[in-house]
């Protein structure tokens, strides 16, 4: 039957916060359930029909009572709303010093990549005590990145970057599930998150067979796809120079500007006609279908590595921080 449990492990800073809210909700629920059940049982027994001719007195609506039992539950639900929303709001802001991980969901596996270039499938190794930010893309349908021990979940919607983050507090091995139904082998799209002591994590990082960092791989790809034929570093190419581009405002043909963030660079690779930089012709072909989402991530990381340095880690995808547009912009990660 496997090992039996009634309560999930708490393994992130968020977990106890969510659990405290759970205790409050449980207490309120148990109170009202007992109140209603108790009242029904008590009335049903006490006022059972004793003779066929009984005619109870007509009771008129008690307005005070109606107001009392509307206002008290309303007050309690507002506590629940505020409590729940504050956990959610605080959890939407990833800290500055988060370790960056990239994830690509595809039917039916998770591909995870570290900045140093280590690539994992259905496994994620991370150190304990450090915030970890996961920037996610989907190759096909909607997936959802769910680690119950961390009490966090984020849908991974195709066509955009979604972000989640957590700070593990306890070493161990935890389930990673896909929580959004994604087709035939949905229940096989599972894996493990290994939370390690920092020293063990360093060993793991150096022990892995990394084939160059993400940015290095992106550079190779940039050259093999012949991007550098047009995107030249000396401004002589037919396309914009990408050096020092990341994080800046870009002037667009036809007016308007756009911030050169990850979402913009991704879009410019996959749908280059969507936004044309002022002063350039729309000559770039689309790379949709030619590069996978993880290759796009490598290219984005390469463009980021071209500087400017202080903004190298800035992630403002428009769907930043748990993928919610309108959330406070993420703060650059140190690396």
């Amino acid at each position: 039957m496997g090992k039996f449990q009634l309560f999930p492990v708490q393994a992130s800073t968020l977990a106890p916060e969510v659990d405290h809210l759970l205790y409050f909700l449980l207490a309120v629920s148990v109170f009202f359930t007992l109140l209603i059940f108790g009242a029904i049982f008590f009335f049903a027994i006490k006022y059972r029909r004793r003779s066929e001719g009984e005619l109870p007195h007509v009771q008129h609506t008690g307005y005070t009572l109606e107001i009392v039992w509307s206002v008290i539950p309303f007050g309690l639900t507002m506590v629940m709303f505020t409590w729940g929303a504050s956990i959610f709001f605080n959890a939407s802001k990833p800290p500055n010093d988060a370790i960056q991980i990239y994830a690509v969901g595809k039917q039916w596996m998770w591909k995870l990549e570290h900045m140093e270039g280590q690539r994992e499938i259905n496994e994620l190794h991370i150190p304990v005590g450090r915030p970890v930010r996961v920037t996610m893309a989907s190759e096909d349908v909607i997936h959802s990145f769910f680690v119950p021990a961390f009490r966090t979940k984020q849908d991974v919607v195709p066509g955009r970057y979604s972000t989640t983050w957590f700070t593990p507090t306890k070493t161990g091995k935890y389930h990673l599930f896909c929580a959004e139904y994604c087709g035939t082998r949905h229940s096989g799209m599972i894996g493990w998150v290994y939370v390690m002591e920092p020293a063990d994590y360093q060993n793991w990082l150096s022990g892995g067979a990394a084939e160059g960092s993400l940015a290095d791989n992106g550079k190779k790809l940039f050259e093999s796809l012949a991007c550098n034929n047009c995107h030249k570093e000396d401004n002589t190419g037919r396309c914009p120079n990408l050096v020092n581009l990341f994080g800046k405002q870009v002037q667009l043909a036809g007016g308007g500007t756009v911030k050169a963030d990850e979402a913009y660079i991704r879009e410019s690779i996959l749908q280059p006609q969507a936004k044309i930089v002022a002063g350039f012709e729309p000559v770039m072909p689309t790379f949709t279908g030619l590069v996978s989402e993880d290759q796009v991530l490598q290219l984005v990381e390469y463009v980021k590595s071209l500087g400017p340095k202080p903004a190298a880690g800035a992630i403002d995808t428009g769907t930043s921080s748990q993928g919610r547009p309108g959330a406070p912009p993420a703060i650059p990660a140190k690396r």
């Binding site: 969510v18 809210l21 909700l25 729940g84 709001f89 959890a91 119950p148 979940k153 984020q154 929580a179």
Partner: peptide
């Protein structure tokens, strides 16, 4: 409750 839903939804 938003903070609870991120854990229990789906």
């Amino acid at each position: 409750a938003l903070g609870m839903d991120i854990h229990v939804t789906d």
